[in-house]
Computed example of a mutant assay.
Amino acid sequence: MVNIIWAAMAIVGILYAMFNGTMEDVNKALFESADEAVTISIGLISILVFWLGIMKIAEKAGILQILAKLFRPVVVRLFPEIPKDHPAMGYILSNFTANVFGLGNAATPMGIKAMEQMKELSGTDTASRSMITFLALNTSSLTLIPTTVIAIRMHYDSASPTEIVGTTIIATIISTLAAVVVDRIFYYRSIRRG
C-alpha cells in the first residue's frame, strides 16, 4: 500500500511539472538531491564505523556487559515469559544497548535474532507477548545519543550539532514510557476479554 502511495505521489508530481512547465526544475532538483544523498551517506558511513568501533571497544572492555547487567532487571520485568538465561534475553539487551547509542543499523541484526529466538520460544507463527513488547519498545526509539542526526547536522555545518542530545533523551523517555504503558494496557485488556 505504501508503495502505491509513493508511486502515486511521484506520478502526480511529474504530471504537474509537465503541465506547469517546470520539468527542467524537477530534473535539476532530482539530480542535485541524489548527489547530496550519496555525499551524506558516505559521511554517515564514517560516523557509523566510528561508533561501531567504539561499541567494539566497549564490548572488549566489558562496558556492554555492565550496561547489560544494568538493564537486565528492567528487561526481565518487561519480558516475564522469557527465561533469564535464554539467548533471546542477550539479543534483546544487545539490541537495546546499540539503540541507546543511536546505532540502529548495528541494532537491527540483534533485533532480528531476538525475534527469531522469541518465535522459537512461542512455537507459533503468531506474535507472542514478548515479541509485541519488543517491537513496541524498538518503535519508541530507545536513543540517548542520536549519532546519525549528529552526523547529518555536522555535514550541514551546524553551529552546535550535539545540542539535540537533551531533547532526544526527553523524547526517548516519553516515547518509551508511552510504549510500555500502551503495551501493558492492550495486554491486560486482552486478558480480560479472553
Score class of each variant (00 low, 15 high):
residue 64 L to N: 15
residue 64 L to Q: 11
residue 64 L to S: 12
residue 65 Q to P: 02
residue 66 I to L: 13
residue 67 L to E: 05
residue 67 L to T: 06
residue 67 L to Q: 06
residue 68 A to I: 00
residue 69 K to F: 05
residue 69 K to S: 10
residue 69 K to D: 10
residue 70 L to Y: 06
residue 72 R to T: 00
residue 74 V to W: 01
residue 74 V to Y: 01
residue 75 V to S: 03
residue 75 V to Q: 02
residue 76 V to L: 03
residue 78 L to D: 02
residue 78 L to S: 05
residue 79 F to E: 01
residue 79 F to G: 01
residue 80 P to Q: 08
residue 80 P to K: 05
residue 82 I to G: 00
residue 82 I to H: 00
residue 83 P to I: 03
residue 83 P to A: 07
residue 83 P to E: 08
residue 83 P to W: 03
residue 85 D to H: 01
residue 85 D to F: 00
residue 86 H to N: 11
residue 86 H to D: 12
residue 87 P to W: 03
residue 88 A to F: 00
residue 89 M to D: 00
residue 90 G to Y: 05
residue 91 Y to N: 01
residue 92 I to S: 04
residue 92 I to R: 03
residue 92 I to D: 02
residue 92 I to Y: 02
residue 93 L to H: 03
residue 94 S to P: 06
residue 94 S to I: 04
residue 94 S to F: 08
residue 95 N to G: 15
residue 95 N to M: 15
residue 96 F to T: 08
residue 96 F to A: 12
residue 97 T to E: 04
residue 97 T to N: 10
residue 98 A to R: 07
residue 99 N to D: 15
residue 99 N to V: 10
residue 99 N to R: 11
residue 100 V to F: 14
residue 100 V to K: 03
residue 101 F to L: 04
residue 101 F to K: 00
residue 102 G to Q: 09
residue 103 L to E: 05
residue 103 L to C: 11
residue 104 G to E: 10
residue 104 G to D: 13
residue 105 N to T: 11
residue 106 A to L: 14
residue 106 A to Q: 06
residue 107 A to K: 07
residue 108 T to I: 13
residue 108 T to N: 13
residue 110 M to P: 08
residue 110 M to G: 11
residue 111 G to K: 02
residue 112 I to G: 11
residue 112 I to K: 12
residue 112 I to V: 15
residue 113 K to L: 15
residue 113 K to P: 07
residue 116 E to R: 13
residue 117 Q to G: 04
residue 118 M to R: 04
residue 118 M to W: 05
residue 119 K to L: 08
residue 119 K to V: 04
residue 121 L to R: 08
residue 122 S to Q: 12
residue 124 T to E: 12
residue 124 T to L: 09
residue 125 D to I: 02
residue 125 D to R: 05
residue 127 A to S: 15
residue 128 S to M: 10
residue 128 S to C: 12
residue 129 R to D: 11
residue 129 R to F: 08
residue 130 S to A: 15
residue 130 S to L: 06
residue 130 S to K: 04
residue 131 M to R: 02
residue 132 I to L: 14
residue 133 T to R: 13
residue 134 F to N: 05
residue 134 F to K: 05
